[in-house]
Design a binder for these strands. Structure first.
Lengths: 225, 225
DNA sequence: GCGCGGCATTTGTGATCACAAACGCGCATG
DNA sequence: CATGCGCGTTTGTGATCACAAATGCCGCGC
């Protein structure tokens, strides 16, 4: 089923001109994105041979990609070595939400001095697409544009290490966010994003911190209830 | 050459009764601890075959251990796939210090209600050992006991996810902390630890947050200067 | 004496195999 | 009809090999 080609004995077959990353790295990126935006539900199992067949790879690079995702908390490892998307307890969700509430206002604050109009316009555009996803009840598109909104802002903070840590938190929440949406579809576009944009325009740092914190904690409120 | 024994055709030979983790996991733990407490200086290179020979393993488990550490930021990956301990820029150090300053007061605050006398005594004892490390100019022992002091407190917060994120920050700073100590040996035992203990005893939450934050930021002040 | 080109070596990547443990499904039994 | 037990299958782990790229070192030429 996975054999799209007769599998010649070459080691790295599909090597065209363009810059091509290592196979394990490509697989890592694909899976990471899927988990991040909630394409996988919590508890979904992933097997080495299964993914290997699916992507035309042997077990070695698959194992590396999975190990990396496990290390980042994007996947969990059962005692027998099986990997699956995490099924978070309410306590863990609260912790991860608290981490978001700690880190994201700081990143927003650092981005504020560099947030000129072009950036705010981009954020506004992303927000529009996000509203469309809400209208279409498209969970994945909703999560993706929501994260894109935040990440676009935080990129301006010029703080790659903080952003990297934050993204591992997002990764851990990915499948759970999707499951949340399945249960309680958003009926309204993110109301707090408008507050964020207003605070950015006004250069209001305390207001921005508050708006971010509210947006983050309120989004995950339904879960712990 | 790595054959310390005639290598019988068994896959997992040394399997005695005791609970034994996978080989790649054991190697991961050893390296992680070494990096965490500063046994490795920044820029130190690690090779698959080198570590494999050193620990009597093939490349496969070594690769997994290294990949995991890279994913946690404990090691960096050069463009050609070489792994080495990170050489942090001042900006990155500042970011990681800021993350510590955000997360650690929160963990301390959550631990405060559960910090009874036995815990404070344990912390005090660790602090004593830490002072000895300072007297002996033992960089590794200093870093190890310092982290143990903080971790012992934070374990009481019952927040494993937050602690895990914090430890990845510590990991990234490990080699740099060691290098810092080489340049500027601590001439005094950690003065802020006494403030932390006092705030714990008094149940003074704002004072505890401040003491933790000060301890964290001041320890890394020498670097960014 | 200095720089540079080429080759031997080192090193990471991926495929494949052998093995043991875990899993699960079906059958036999009470 | 319910409940274990057992075996075939699936799955992770680690070793080994083939290969290509990067490294670095030595010697040749200027």
């Amino acid at each position: 089923m996975a054999e799209t080609s007769p599998r010649p004995p070459l080691a790295t077959p599909a090597k065209s001109p363009p810059a091509e990353a290592a196979a394990h790295d490509r697989l890592y990126r694909v899976l990471r994105q899927q988990i991040l935006v909630g394409e996988l539900l919590p508890g979904q199992a992933l097997t080495l041979r299964g993914l290997g067949k699916q992507f035309g790879l042997s077990m070695t690079p698959v194992r590396e990609a999975l190990r990396r995702l496990v290390a980042e908390g994007a996947l969990t490892l059962s005692s027998s070595g099986r990997v699956a998307t995490p099924e978070l307890t309410n306590e863990r969700i609260e912790e991860l939400a608290a981490l978001r509430a700690l880190i994201e206002p700081e990143l927003a604050s650092r981005a504020l001095p560099r947030a000129h109009l072009a950036l705010i316009d981009r954020l506004s555009a992303i927000n529009t697409v996000n509203a469309e996803a809400v209208a279409k009840r498209d969970a994945v598109a909703y999560i993706r544009t929501n994260l894109e909104f935040h990440r676009t802002l935080y990129l301006r903070a010029q703080a790659p290490a903080m952003l990297a840590v934050l993204e591992t938190v997002w990764l851990q929440l990915g499948p759970t966010m999707r499951a949340l949406y399945e249960k309680v579809p958003r009926n309204e576009p993110p109301r707090h994003h408008r507050l964020i944009l207003a605070a950015l325009r006004a250069g209001d740092e305390p207001g921005l911190r508050l708006a971010i914190r509210t947006d983050v904690t309120q989004g995950l409120r339904h879960l712990t209830g």
